[in-house]
């Protein structure tokens, strides 16, 4: 399943661009309505971003080149010294390793499960609302409760899981000592919280698929599974891309779960589960080196962009446009194109 998801995720921008509709009527409204109102519609985002988002980004970029004193809000320009230091720090690379490991352990099972759950919820269920709202419940639980539950489960000595294991004669797992178990535990926390969330996003997309596509496929003799791959997945591609990109960005910035994983929040005695954002936070708020922390923030930003682009490239390569649905899409696009020009 995982292989079917990744390939689906690209090509989006192309399609989005094509879809950006061909509205050039000039009859009643002035040309400006067509030409300028889109800018008006996206303006609120950029205004809010300008007030609340832009300054922090510029600030971070600026101080990453400085030996920065947070309290005095001043610093000394040192070029790329902070970046240099970070790239030569062993902990940075450990954190990078952990981040990718936790990311893969969480993102892949999570997206597969979310897609399957969404497909199940997309059926003609009795008491639909109950099931749908049910999967979102983990997202509603207050963070303090989540962290308490999981630290109760994954305690090395008195944790629920190890107690159960020892009841059936299996050696306890050292959740807070060994690297892979700690990553699995953290990935479990992440998946618990976000699977239902992503399932509902995908469900919304599935709900928007015209039902006659399924009818047509059924008439052609396609079975449930086949319909899922030939109709559902291609149809929800834009949303799938959205889910993959946000899961990638969120996954690589993973912070809350590993930080809640033990009482110190510093990633373990041997940095077993130190992630990049925790590393960043520890340098900033722990060691009070905000210039260096800002350099980490920018390195992480670049890594995320690189991964996202790579994702996009891979998906494009794997996307084949050979199914019936896509053909029908193309026809409609042609039609609209004609109408538009």
């Amino acid at each position: 399943m995982s292989t079917t998801i990744a390939p689906q995720s690209g090509g989006s921008k192309e399609r989005v661009r094509q879809d950006k509709s061909q509205l050039n009527w000039r009859q009643r409204r002035g040309q400006w309505d067509v030409k300028y109102s889109p800018y008006l519609y996206i303006a609120p985002f950029f205004i809010v971003f300008g007030v609340a988002g832009l300054f922090p980004i510029i600030y971070t970029a600026f101080i990453s080149l400085q030996d920065w004193d947070l309290v005095r809000n001043s610093g000394e320009y040192i070029g790329f010294g902070q970046y240099n230091w970070v790239l030569h720090d062993r902990e940075f690379w450990i954190a990078l390793r952990n981040t990718f490991s936790i990311f893969l352990l969480s993102a892949i099972p999570q997206l597969v499960a979310a897609t399957v759950i969404a497909a199940m919820l997309d059926q003609n269920l009795r008491a639909r609302t109950l099931w749908r709202m049910g999967v979102l419940l983990p997202y509603v639980v207050a963070p303090v409760a989540v962290s308490l539950i999981f630290s109760n489960m994954f305690g090395d000595k008195f944790g629920l899981i190890n107690t159960l294991l020892s009841d059936i004669g299996i050696d306890p797992i050292l959740w807070h000592t060994d690297i892979i178990p700690s990553h699995i535990a953290i990935a479990t926390m992440v998946n618990f919280r976000w699977t239902g969330y992503n399932a509902l996003i995908l469900l919304a997309a599935m709900q928007a698929i015209p039902r006659d596509l399924y009818e047509a496929a059924a008439i052609d003799g396609a079975k449930t599974v086949r319909r899922f791959f030939s109709v559902t997945i291609p149809q929800i591609r834009p949303t799938m891309i959205f889910v993959i990109i946000t899961a990638t960005i969120g996954g690589l910035q993973i912070f809350d779960e590993p930080r809640m994983y033990d009482q110190t929040g510093t990633g373990g005695a041997n940095k077993q589960w130190l992630t990049i954002t925790m590393y960043l936070y520890n340098i900033g708020w722990g060691k009070f080196n905000f210039g260096r922390a800002a350099a980490v923030a920018w390195l992480l930003f670049l890594i995320i962009i690189a991964i996202t682009l790579m994702n996009n490239y891979l998906t494009r390569r794997f996307v084949s446009g050979e199914d019936a649905v896509k053909k029908s899409k193309k026809t409609s696009l042609k039609l609209t194109a004609k109408g538009g020009k």
Binding site: S151, N152, G155, D156, K157, F158, G159, D262, Q263
Partner: peptide, 16 residues
Amino acid sequence: AHLSQWSDDWFAGLAT
């Protein structure tokens, strides 16, 4: 007892 202070195990160890 190999319990790291303030961990859940530590509190449980205290209680037991």
